[in-house]
Write a protein that binds this DNA or RNA. Sequence first.
DNA 1: GTTAATGCAAATTGTTTGCACTTTC
DNA 2: GAAAGTGCAAACAATTTGCATTAAC
Lengths: 143, 143
Amino acid sequence: MSGDFADRIRSSGKRLTAQRELILRAVETLGHATPDEILAEVRTHASAVNASTIYRNLEVLEELGLVRHTHLSDRAPTYHSVGGHEHFHLVCRGCHKVTSVDPAVMGPVVERLRAEQGFVPDLGHLAMFGHCVDCEAGQNRQQ
Amino acid sequence: MSGDFADRIRSSGKRLTAQRELILRAVETLGHATPDEILAEVRTHASAVNASTIYRNLEVLEELGLVRHTHLSDRAPTYHSVGGHEHFHLVCRGCHKVTSVDPAVMGPVVERLRAEQGFVPDLGHLAMFGHCVDCEAGQNRQQ
DNA sequence: GTTAATGCAAATTGTTTGCACTTTC
DNA sequence: GAAAGTGCAAACAATTTGCATTAAC
């Protein structure tokens, strides 16, 4: 089960530590979480883990392709595990609901950007802000 | 010339101050600029302007629809004036080049998101990260 | 003259860094 | 036991806040 993970880590010359494993598990458990939330979750399993360890490990885990981050608010970034399927995000400014969308939806745009701008987007990092139907109507409007 | 601006401000119950005008001008001059860069630019015209005044006014100017902000890096946001044409941004992770793109390119996607997700994106806030042709090749790869 | 806006200093939030100590390999 | 990783405290960057003073209307 965590064999893949262990191999993935070691084959990169990095080491397998308890904290590293806990942090990856926390990201998997939480879905989309900020470093702060990840710290809190990790601390429910092991007490003394430091914030800087969270930051350093999120960077490592992202380098290894095990987690990704995106910006779902103007505040801290959120990390999620790379559980096979890539996705991008819709964020409603009214109710703050976050929806994951299949990147295939962006197919035609990706083609045009490549052709016209010579640009290949990283959809896994993408967050589109806007309003969902409920909030579009007006009741929940915030920003 | 700044009559529009003056009316726009006053009709909202806000007041027209020298700082407010300087900040809007700075945003117009700079294109895409962080609060810090805006502060520096303002200070070339008037010495004592405070950082908190920059933040407070950017918020006001954005409420009034005179400027917009987007996130072109993992650091500070950048503000640009709403000079008629809405656009979204492509940011190359290799060379950090920023390209403005006509929102019409996203037409088909906007349609699908509305139909399938009931979601209306705010394209003016959108920044897509990825790699431009030159950096895609490999030489400039960073992240 | 009332109320909004500014300046200033201090507080907050999120993140990074240097360094001694600990752990993994 | 060498090198990577951790904890801790301090530094840092970006932003926000409280409050007295100033300026716009």
